Amino acid sequence: MGILNDLFEYWPRLVEGLCISIQLALLAYVIGIPGGLVFAVATMARSKLIRTTAVVLVEIGRGVPALVVLQIIYFGLPINLGGFLAAGIAFGLTTSAYTSEIIRGGLQAVPKGELEAAQALGMKYATTLRDVIVPQGMRIALPALVSFCVLMFQATTLAFTIAVPELMAITRSISSQTFQFFNMFVIAGLMYGVITISASLAVERLERRLAKHV
C-alpha cells in the first residue's frame, strides 16, 4: 500500500517529469533521424572523401557513450544552451549515429530491380535516391527505427546528470526528501515500462502490417 500511497501523492510531479522525458526524446528524434538519413546517404556516396568522412563520424558517434556526449555539449561548449536543449542535442547526435546504420541497411535492402527500372527511365541518381530509394528504404527500416527510439527514450534518464527535471531527476528529488527510495524508483520503473512496453507492442503490430506489403 505504501507504493500506491506514494504514487497518488506524487503523481502530478511524476507525470510532469515523464512529460519532460517524452519531450526530450522527441527532440532527440527530430534531430537524430534526419541526421541519420543524411549520414546513411553520405556513407553510400560515390565520392570516397564524403563516404570516408561519414563513416568516421558515424563510428565516432557510435563509439562515444551518450553520457560523455551529454557532458561535452553541456559543460564543454563555450555557450550556455540550457540543460534541456543541451540534452536534446546530445541525444540527437547519438541517435543520428546509430540510426544511420539502421537506415543504411534499409536503403541497401531496396530491390535492385527498382534501381534498374529507374535507370531505364533515365532518372538521375539524385532523383532516384529521393523518389525511389529513400521512401522504400525508410519503410523497410521503420520497425528497427522505432525499436531504437524506445531505447533512446530510456536513455533520457541520463539527463538528470545535468539537472534536467525529467522523470528520473524528479524521482531522485522526491526520494531524497522522503527516503522512500524503493517505492519511488519502483514507480518510476513502472512508468517507464508502460511507455516502452506499449511502444514495443506497437512495433510488433507495425512489423506485421508492413510484412503484408512485402
Rank of each mutant, 00 (worst) to 15 (best):
K112R: 15
V132D: 11
V110I: 13
A120F: 07
L129E: 14
D131K: 03
Q119H: 07
G113N: 08
M123W: 11
M123A: 12
Q119T: 07
K124N: 12
P135L: 04
I133N: 01
Q136W: 00
A126P: 00
A118V: 02
A117R: 07
E116R: 01
D131E: 12
Q119V: 03
L129D: 10
L107H: 09
K112C: 10
A120P: 08
A109Y: 12
V110T: 14
L129R: 11
L115A: 15
V110R: 12
G122W: 02
A126Q: 06
V110G: 14
V134D: 08
P111Y: 09
A126L: 02
L107Q: 10
E116M: 00
T127M: 01
G113R: 02
E114F: 07
Q108I: 08
R130P: 03
L115M: 15
Q108N: 13
L121K: 11
A118R: 03
G106Q: 08
V110C: 13
K124F: 04
L107G: 08
Q119I: 01
E114C: 06
G106H: 07
P135T: 04
L129H: 07
G122L: 04
G113C: 03
Y125P: 06
L115P: 08
P111Q: 13
L121R: 10
T128A: 06
K112V: 14
V134Q: 08
G106W: 07
G122T: 04
A120G: 15
T128N: 06
D131A: 05
R130K: 12
D131T: 02
V110F: 12
P111D: 15
L107P: 05
A120S: 15
Q136Y: 01
M123C: 10
A109D: 14
L121Y: 13
D131F: 00
Q136T: 04
L121I: 09
K124R: 14
L129W: 05
Q119W: 04
M123V: 08
L121H: 12
E116A: 01
R130A: 12
A118H: 05
V132Q: 09
G106P: 07
G122N: 07
L129K: 10
E116Y: 01
A118W: 02
M123E: 12
K124G: 14
P111W: 05
E114R: 07
M123R: 11
L129S: 12
L115H: 15
L129V: 10
A120M: 10
I133K: 03
M123L: 15
Y125S: 13
V134C: 05
V134K: 07
V132A: 09
Q119Y: 06
Q136R: 05
E116F: 01
P111I: 05
G106V: 04
G113L: 03
